[in-house]
């Protein structure tokens, strides 16, 4: 059983929960950028949390199903069509044998997640089916003409699931480990300013234009380990929020760290959209660990 890819839009990748635990070998964790949306899509079609889904940037995906299967699209609300008729977002839909599925361009957001019952069963690399776009560890990007193998469905769809409540407002941040490399008001400046998402933002990082954060120490920081959500400040002073494919180590100081529960929003911000930050108390470590799952 497989899906035939007829069109793949600007960028379609296979993603699961990534391959954490290999940063010391220089391997990014990768994994779905909007993890709650990917998890919801999997739940809707009855998959395990570890099943691989398709991460579709700005729509344009077209698939032909050789056998019937359940699918669910979540994340950016790309219009979903099956054989030309509109179907629902955020719910399990039946794809009949011989049917064609199409995802249009979402009116908001960037990344739509398409889960298929049984999961996308390409060969895992280092324990994960995620494609890392920094070092290209993992399966190749999805291209027209390929067949995506599917796993065996083993549970019934759960159509009544709902996405987590949207929490508008600024991205919450806690101070980073190198606050001493910046002017004392740097975090206030970060949190008091409006930044604009730059066009070269990607799975490695959300690049932001806006008031430059001033460093008080020049020179290079010896390379050190980096975390998901680290707000790194290169010499330009323009912050970069590290996302799933970030380099495991980096040499620019980290001023702040984005709250784990707000990271998914970085996956859905479009170039030109505005971003603000707000200081937050450190989140509960156990809850934060759960949010990463």
């Amino acid at each position: 059983m497989s899906l035939h890819v007829l069109a793949a839009g600007p960028l379609t990748l296979v993603q699961d929960r990534g391959r954490p635990g290999l940063a010391h070998l220089g391997v990014p964790r990768a994994g779905a950028l909007d993890a709650p949306a990917a998890a919801l899509a999997n739940r809707l079609v009855g998959n395990d949390a570890d099943a691989a889904v398709l991460e579709v940037v700005l729509g344009g995906l077209e698939l032909y199903a050789e056998a019937a299967c359940w699918v669910a699209a979540t994340g950016a609300p790309a219009p979903l069509e099956i054989d030309g008729s509109a179907r629902g977002h955020g719910r399990a839909e039946r794809l009949a044998a011989g049917a064609t599925l199409r995802l249009g361009r979402p009116p908001t957001g960037v990344r739509t997640y398409l889960a298929v019952a049984g999961g996308i069963a390409v060969d895992p690399v280092l324990g994960s089916r995620s494609t890392d776009t920094l070092a290209w560890v993992g399966p190749p990007p999805v291209r027209p003409g390929v067949r995506l193998p599917l796993g065996r469905p083993h549970a019934v769809p759960r159509p009544l699931d709902t996405p987590p409540a949207y929490r508008p407002g600024p991205l919450r941040v806690t101070p980073g480990p190198r606050a001493d490399w910046f002017a004392s008001d740097a975090l206030d400046l970060l949190c008091g300013s409006t930044y604009v998402v730059e066009a070269d933002s990607n799975r490695v990082g959300l690049r932001l234009d806006g008031p430059a954060v001033t460093r008080i120490r020049s020179g290079e920081l010896p390379s050190e380990g980096m975390v998901l959500g680290a707000v790194q400040v290169p010499p330009s002073g323009r912050p970069v929020v590290f996302l799933a494919d970030h380099p495991p180590t980096g040499g620019y100081p980290v001023l702040a760290v984005v709250h784990p529960e707000d990271l998914w929003r970085c996956a859905q911000l479009r170039p030109g959209e505005r971003v603000r930050f707000s200081p937050a108390p450190p989140p509960d470590p156990a809850a934060a660990a759960a949010a990463r799952r």
Binding site: T174, P175, G176, P177, V227, A230, V254, V257, H259, A288
Partner: peptide
Amino acid sequence: RPFGATAAL
């Protein structure tokens, strides 16, 4: 040095 909610340097 604390580094976000679940990490330290």
